[in-house]
């Protein structure tokens, strides 16, 4: 900007036209010409028709397929999703049929990981707990994407007072950490009395959206003044349709990356809330609840706490690794020539 406004102060020298006739050396300089066969002349700027053509997503996919980080995380996520949908395939013991006679018993045939204090099968509860965590993670991420995505995109694209208001609003929500905000919402009488997966989702969405809004806003701002958007408008496309057709698709990559990592952190947040006793109701089988229940006997029977914690960590880890892999694959800098 400064260059546009202030004239170059370096122009203090006289601008007497120097007759520039080129320099002629006193030395003799050999005139070398490479033989033509060494560097055959190609036509100017011809299209290389031999390469395979790929869209951005196809290109990213091709890169991803070769990345061990992606393969491992994708397989793990697939496993977790299948377990969440049909837990019965993996565990044949009812996680809710607990007999106090088995309280804190060790592993035995059919019960590979032993029993909890209440005499429930640890393995079975670990398998059945997947669904709650994944549901909260996925729906919170969806909610955050919808609210934060729309807010961020509108603020970034239209700017002006809308941007100012939305940015301040995001700042306000940012001032309260996710866990703290969710705790406050969850202890409201309305929420405390109706505990379910959905109250947890709402609480997390309410304080989780500003992050996605910021990322989206940044990505949209980066693209809104791109020449291709200007060109589309000059073709007669309305500003809103230019946003939908050109700006949003080009802004998706960073949002997807952050959403994937956020999904992991939302699962951790849910577990933390359940651990504190203000997340999911105890009737729902969840890793957070099980860890919470196991904490009293962590010193004499740590494996009861360990197994749900391991399942939780692996799930979160796979989403974060997926985000990392996507970040590398979708990096626009790597794609630009």
């Amino acid at each position: 900007m400064s260059e546009n406004l202030t004239p170059d102060k370096g122009t203090t020298e006289p601008v007497t036209p120097v007759t520039r006739q080129g320099k002629i050396s006193s030395r003799t300089i050999e005139h070398f010409v490479a033989p033509l066969e060494e560097t055959p002349l190609a036509a100017v700027d011809n299209v290389d028709e031999t390469t395979v053509s790929l869209s951005l997503w196809a290109d990213a996919w091709r890169n991803l397929r070769k990345q061990p980080l992606f393969i491992i995380s994708a397989l793990l996520i697939l496993l977790v999703v299948v377990v969440a949908i049909v837990p019965g395939l993996f565990a044949h013991v009812d996680p809710t049929s607990c007999t106090l006679a088995d309280s804190a018993e060790g592993p035995r045939s059919g019960h590979p990981l032993g029993f909890t204090l209440q005499g429930c099968d640890v393995y079975s509860r670990m398998i059945y707990g997947t669904r709650a965590s994944l549901t909260v993670g996925i729906f919170t991420t969806l909610g955050v994407l919808i609210i934060g995505g729309i807010m961020g995109a509108l603020a970034g694209y239209y700017g002006g007072w809308l941007d100012t208001i939305l940015a301040r609003l995001a700042d306000i929500f940012f001032a309260l950490p996710l866990i703290l905000g969710a705790i406050i919402i969850n202890q409201l009488p309305l929420f405390r009395d109706n505990k379910s997966v959905w109250t947890v989702v709402i609480a997390l969405v309410a304080f989780g959206w500003p992050q996605i809004a910021r990322i989206t806003r940044g990505a949209v701002i980066e693209n809104r003044n791109a020449d291709f958007v200007m060109a589309a408008k000059a073709l007669g496309l309305s500003p809103f349709r230019a946003l939908m057709k050109h700006v949003v698709p080009n802004s998706l990559a960073p949002i997807i990356v952050v959403a994937s990592i956020s999904l992991g952190t939302f699962i951790v947040a849910e577990a933390t809330l359940s651990f504190l006793g203000i997340g999911l109701p105890f009737s729902v089988i969840s890793w957070g609840n099980d860890i919470s229940a196991a904490q009293t006997q962590v010193r004499n029977n740590p494996s009861v706490l360990l197994w749900p914690a391991v399942a939780l960590s692996i799930t979160v880890l796979s989403f974060i690794m997926l985000g990392d892999a996507l970040r590398d694959a979708l990096d626009p800098k790597a794609r630009k020539r």
């Binding site: 520039r20 080129g22 320099k23 002629i24 050396s25 030395r27 300089i29 050999e30 005139h31 070398f32 010409v33 490479a34 060494e38 560097t39 190609a42």
Partner: peptide, 22 residues
């Protein structure tokens, strides 16, 4: 040509011609 005594012309990673600028 205006600033140098000697030119080296490169094309596709090779020097194809070099010599007195003018």
């Amino acid at each position: 040509a205006e600033r140098a005594e000697k030119l080296v012309v490169m094309y596709k990673g090779q020097v194809v011609e070099s010599g007195p600028a003018l």
